Simulated scan of single mutants.
Amino acid sequence: MQGSEPNETEADAILAAVAAGVDGIAATVGDHCEVLVHDYRSPESSVVAVGGSVTGRRAGDPMSEIGRRMHAAGDAAQPDINYRNRTPDGRMIRSSTIPLRDSGGRVIGCLCINVDTTALHTLRDQLDTMLGGSGPETVPTTDFPSSFDAALDEILLYEARSRDKELTDLTTAERGEVLRRIDERGLLQARGAVRRISTRLGVSRAAVYKTLKAGHGRD
């Protein structure tokens, strides 16, 4: 959970200072590197600076699924260094996500570095096959949505299709499961999330809050 509110002036200065270095970091690593700065005070449009391009994101875009999980951890968030993930179009990425804190220890955003390692993985897999190895490794896919609504709609579409139902036909128990998935992805923290979710589910905001209060309840 987040603690007290950060000093806005200090937070702005820290984020601006880190943002000033993204182009230099990306250029040093090479054209397969992307460096982003996120401002957690605006999770639905958290990207404030981008150097290079790997995921195709731009300033004003929302955070990824991994970023949302770190944001949900609040001030307890810890650096996640050198992890592997995969883009929806199949490219392999090695990433590091580092929380940015103000002088009071409050997490105000993060620095994220993504390096496209697809060519190296392809070469390794080819060598592994030739040498009789175990074959390609399994790496989780990470979403890099162009907007909060795109991330939300992706989850809702999957949940509706998996039940062969329209979103407005879900039972209270099923809506509870859907809300749990949304919460796990860190989307409930975004401004206006409940309003947007209630519209798509065809229920009132009060009904969504009631389900959340009941621990995503059941019929």
Rank of each mutant, 00 (worst) to 15 (best):
P79K: 00
C112G: 09
E65C: 02
D125W: 07
S96A: 04
V107Y: 02
R101I: 02
I81L: 11
P88I: 10
T87N: 02
I93S: 03
G74I: 11
L111S: 03
R124F: 14
R101T: 05
L123T: 13
I113Q: 00
R84K: 14
Q78S: 13
A119I: 06
A76I: 09
D89N: 03
I66S: 06
G90P: 01
T122H: 08
R91E: 06
M63I: 15
N82C: 09
I98L: 10
R94G: 01
P62M: 11
G60K: 05
T118K: 02
M92D: 10
I66V: 15
A73W: 05
R94M: 11
I113H: 00
M92R: 12
Q78N: 04
R84Q: 15
D125T: 13
D125Q: 06
T117G: 00
R124C: 06
T117V: 14
A77S: 11
R86A: 04
D89E: 12
M70F: 05
G109D: 08
I98N: 00
N114R: 05
T97E: 05
C110L: 09
S95R: 05
G104R: 11
A72N: 07
L123A: 13
Q126W: 12
A72T: 15
Y83A: 07
V115E: 06
V107E: 04
H71C: 09
D75R: 04
L120A: 13
T122I: 11
D116T: 08
L120V: 09
L111A: 08
L123E: 10
V107S: 03
D125L: 02
D89F: 01
Q78I: 13
G74E: 09
T122N: 13
Q126S: 11
R68I: 09
H71K: 10
P62T: 15
R91L: 08
R101E: 00
M63Y: 07
L100T: 11
M92V: 13
D116P: 04
I66E: 05
I81W: 02
Y83H: 14
P99V: 12
E65I: 08
A119M: 07
S64W: 09
G90C: 05
T97G: 03
N82R: 14
N82G: 08
I66D: 05
M92C: 08
G104L: 08
L120R: 07
L123I: 14
H71S: 10
S103A: 10
G90S: 03
L123C: 06
S103K: 02
L100W: 01
